[in-house]
Design a protein around this nucleic acid. Structure first.
Length: 563
RNA sequence: AGGGGUGUCGCCAAGUGGUAAGGCAGCGGAUUUUGAUUCCGCCAUUCCUAGGUUCAAAUCCUAGCUCCCCUGCCA
């Protein structure tokens, strides 16, 4: 709906936009260029979504642009597979980088030249210390570090050694290029940080042409400057890297000096957002893969049925600030429900069936009713639903001995079957175990369409499917991977919810058999469901994206445990 | 005396010296052919704490405290 689209477009202001407003007003900048710089070493998750929305959203807001730049400076960890999937996920989220797709590896030559310049200025040197020695010399949080014996190496020697590092003459770990800053700095990042290390690994783009690769701190700021980025937005943990970011730009002849600005990343309750953890979930078989609907990856959420718009709304509503925060899962869920309520087509499906026979309805007779596809959206139209003598209704919609305020079916109680007729339960049929197997009801022909002229009140309206027409479907019911907030002190595997996935067989109305994977539906009174890619012709599979708000369940729960 | 951040309702978060927005959650109630949606009402005399400045402080000053991040040849 347009109302929603505009609500999404009107972005709240926050400290980053205030900085930009100031830069635009002062004339420091006339345009805004941001970048989203993922390392292609894993799949994107909901945490990345916040950064994507911020960077791309800022570009859209100011009529500037946002570059997608892969930070591929560590060939040992990166794979092409991820550069593909990351692009796919960003597009799905709804953002576009136009022609501005870049790779840090595109700048390996200029980056190398900049390093040579640093050496020539006496601001970088080749260190022969071992990794262990470097760690020792670095000191610690309380103690200052001490200078490497190689720190005052002559410039010519540094130049020669660095070139030979590049040419592959030395072993990995034997030498390193360092910036000459201050070994006594209270900021550990300034204690002569590494700029280049030797790595004889095959790079997914540059192949075997390089034997040395630049470090993040060095490559990132310079890549920003090369691309003319105006505002380099990153997360809080890089706050004390900023002096180093600025140091490189201040000491080199670069086209411009972007401003690094840090914000708090998005965290969610009941989930863990780390690649290491994702890997374990997948490898130990707790989930089916990176796109398992329980995963907080964008692929997982997509498969679960979370609309991209809902994720965008969440990021917008959560805001941008600098305090560490953990957003409740319920916040995300409300964004998902809100979006789905407006867009999902309504269908009827019975997850736990009990047969209902209308004794005074002619055998072999069927009627067709037109049912609206979405009461929130008249444009969505209608679809025919078939009604007959034998139906399935939800087992939980009947109680033999109902409590007060139970508006559903019970002996002698009348309810409305959605879109069709009123029925009254006359008889309960049980098997030898006392299990209810069938409800025998009468219907009121005058209630056709779901109302009567006498205006009598019927409080309950039930969903149903025609036993003769219903199609079987596999339905996967999900719960959070963690029942509570994971305790990082304990092993997460012990904290996993054993019931995070429950697979059942349901009966669905025929219209559902024709869906496509990815189609989103509201199963009336049951929740939102997304057709899964595992579906086959005649064998649909649905993931429950999320249930509907259930105030009846809440009322019962509150009564069950009076506080 | 390491350094850098942060602290406003259960969870996010506005607020930038003029007397505490909004959203989520929760709680009431109305409407309802989804116990959904929608709607209406309630929900911080108080802003980490203690002092101080001021006619006036969440906002300014002082001193504490909390939590987070930093000792990869990861990003």
């Amino acid at each position: 709906m347009t109302e929603h689209a505009s609500a999404e477009a009107e972005t709240h202001t926050h400290f980053i936009h205030e900085i930009i407003n100031g830069d635009l007003a002062s004339g420091k900048h006339t345009t805004v260029i941001t970048r989203f710089p993922p390392e292609p070493n894993g799949y994107l998750h909901i945490g990345h979504a916040k950064s994507i929305c911020l960077n791309f959203g800022t570009a859209v807001k100011y009529g500037g642009r946002c570059h997608l730049r892969f930070d591929d400076t560590n060939p040992a960890k990166e794979e092409v597979e991820y550069v593909e999937s990351i692009q796919e996920d960003i597009r799905w989220l709804g953002f576009d980088w136009g022609d501005h797709l870049y790779f840090a590896s595109d700048y390996f030559q200029p980056l190398y030249d900049y390093a040579v310049s640093l050496i020539k200025q006496g601001k970088a040197y080749v260190d022969d210390l071992t990794p262990e020695q470097i760690r020792e010399y670095r000191g610690n949080l309380k103690q200052p570090g001490k200078n490497s014996p190689f720190r005052e190496r002559p410039i010519a020697e540094n130049l020669d050694l660095f070139e030979r590092m590049k040419n592959g003459e030395f072993d990995e770990g034997s030498r390193i290029l360092r910036a000459k800053i201050d070994m006594a700095s209270p900021n550990m990042n300034l204690r002569d940080p590494a700029i280049y290390r030797i790595k004889k690994a095959h790079h997914h783009r540059t192949g075997d042409t390089w034997n040395i690769y630049p470090m993040y701190d060095y490559a990132h700021g310079l890549s920003d400057a090369i691309e003319g980025i105006t505002h380099s937005i990153c997360t809080l943990e890089f706050e004390d890297h900023r002096p180093l970011y600025d140091w490189f730009l201040d000491n080199l002849d670069v086209p411009c000096h972007p401003q690094q600005i840090e914000f708090a990343r998005l965290n969610l309750t009941q989930t863990i957002m780390s690649k290491r953890y994702f890997l374990r979930l997948v490898n130990e078989g707790h989930v089916s893969g990176w796109d398992d609907p329980r995963m907080p990856t964008l692929r997982g959420m997509r498969r679960r049925g979370y609309p991209a718009a809902a994720l965008r709304t969440l990021c917008e509503k959560v805001g941008v600030a600098k305090s560490n925060s953990i957003v409740e899962l319920a916040f995300l869920e409300s964004c998902v429900r809100d979006q789905l309520n407006q867009t999902a087509l309504r269908r009827m499906a019975v997850l736990d069936p009990i047969k209902l026979v209308i004794t005074n309805y002619p055998e072999g007779q069927f009627e067709t009713f037109e049912a609206d596809n979405n009461p929130e959206d008249p444009e969505a139209g209608t679809r025919p639903v078939l009604f007959g003598r034998e139906l399935y209704i939800e087992r939980s919609d009947f109680m033999e001995v109902p409590p007060k305020k139970f508006f559903r079916l019970a002996p002698g109680q009348e309810v409305r079957l959605k879109h069709t007729y009123y029925v009254t339960c006359q008889e309960v049929v049980k098997d030898e175990n006392g299990e209810i197997v069938e409800l025998r009801c009468s219907y009121d022909p005058l209630s056709r369409g779901g109302g009567t002229e006498d205006g009598r009140k019927v409080r309950g309206t039930l969903h149903w499917v025609s036993a003769a027409h219903a199609q079987p479907a596999e339905v996967r019911l999900y719960e959070p991977l963690f029942p509570e907030n994971p305790d990082s002190e304990k092993d997460f595997a012990e904290q996993l919810n054993p019931n995070s996935l429950k697979t059942i067989q349901a009966w669905v109305e025929p219209a559902l058999a024709e869906g496509q994977p990815g189609d989103l539906f509201q199963f009336l009174r049951n929740g939102y469901f997304c057709m899964d890619a595992d579906s086959e012709p005649g064998k649909p599979v649905f993931n429950r994206t999320i249930g509907l708000v259930d105030s009846w369940a809440k009322m019962q729960k509150n009564q069950g445990s009076p506080a």
